[in-house]
Design a protein around this nucleic acid. Structure first.
Lengths: 185, 185
DNA sequence: ATTTACATGTAAGGGGTTACATGATTTG
DNA sequence: CAAATCATGTAACCCCTTACATGTAAAT
């Protein structure tokens, strides 16, 4: 149930159209709460019926652009949501399922895939570092910026963890593979 | 689409009833692919109609216990799935959404929650370490065991990342809070 | 005018969660 | 035999994904 709160947050930072939101998600909040334009539009519609946001049609603009803005009730709801405490959710990780399967039926072409994952995480890591340099080089005293920087650091650490672990895992798998100790049955 | 493959893997490791599977999930595969007994039963039913598994009713046992076993088609399907490469999926993380919201409307009682999260991750970390000592103290040469150990190490590293990051984040938040630089509007 | 790009939406389906329902065997 | 426990299953709902559809303005 976090999409609506992510949207409220983004709209508080800057009133936007649905598509703008989708684009902004792709390079910030979407890193830890991915959302397509479809799900964003759906949620915006709900938020509007609940009077948590309002929309103003923008004539003389492309398409049927509408600008969304958070209403006081939406702001209150966001603050109320922050006050609820929730358990840490367990994340699903298909790669670990695959590795577990490999421990039973043999690794097969998994080594390749883990290299691809390692590279993907390395790319994401690099992207985060770029953002850090570009947006947070001199974070200063602004508390909002320091919190956003914290979030980015969570992402950096996470990618770093996966890069490190995947490198080690790849080494182990390569050894097992070459020594042919894992057969297919 | 990984639940079925997680189930196939678990059943290959040991033929089980649905409830047994659910219990085993809670202390192994479920760490990275949580599943309730309901979802497991549903998936088992599907797997059976596809002839990927078979079930043998167990009379003289409690309830209407059925023992599930993987059929050759299921084994092949699992191996085929291992051969497909998939992109790393983006994990959703509500806590980071909350932190982002906090950067806009103020942290409120978030500090408390982050302490709770830190403790929860510390507990999970400790649990993983126990498992490592109990089950992998002398992992030896068995390739299957080494792969399962790798998976555990991924979990340990992950929990470690969150413990570390949360500790730092808590420090930063505490500073911001006490210096009252984040107001509620 | 037609095409391209922008912008909002609809529809179908999948997978998971939660709450509830039912059947069968032990236990007291 | 009643209650507790084990075991399987149903139903409703929610959110997300994917593919498709429609409307409006700019570009050529």
């Amino acid at each position: 149930m976090s999409l609506r709160h992510a949207i409220l947050t983004a709209l508080l930072e800057r009133p936007s159209s649905g598509l703008d939101l989708a684009r902004r998600f792709d390079r910030s909040i979407g890193y830890f709460w991915p959302a397509t334009h479809q799900s964003i539009y759906r949620e915006l519609a709900r938020l509007e019926t609940e009077q948590w946001v309002e929309s103003v049609p923008q004539p003389r603009s492309r398409g049927r652009r509408k600008l969304y803005r958070v209403l006081p009730a939406g702001r209150s709801a966001l603050i109320a949501w922050l006050a609820q405490d929730e358990e840490p959710e367990r994340n699903r990780d298909a790669l670990l399922v695959r590795l577990r399967a490999a421990s039973v039926v043999g690794p097969g072409p998994l080594l390749q895939q883990m290299r691809a994952h390692r590279d993907a995480h390395a790319r994401q890591h690099a992207e985060y570092l770029e953002i850090a340099e570009r947006d947070f080089a001199d974070v200063g005293e602004d508390p909002g910026a320091r919190l956003r920087m914290l979030i980015l650091e969570a992402g950096i650490g996470l990618e770093n963890h996966w890069m490190t672990w995947l490198s080690e895992a790849i080494d182990v798998l390569a050894t097992l593979d070459s020594s042919d100790q894992v057969s297919d049955r």
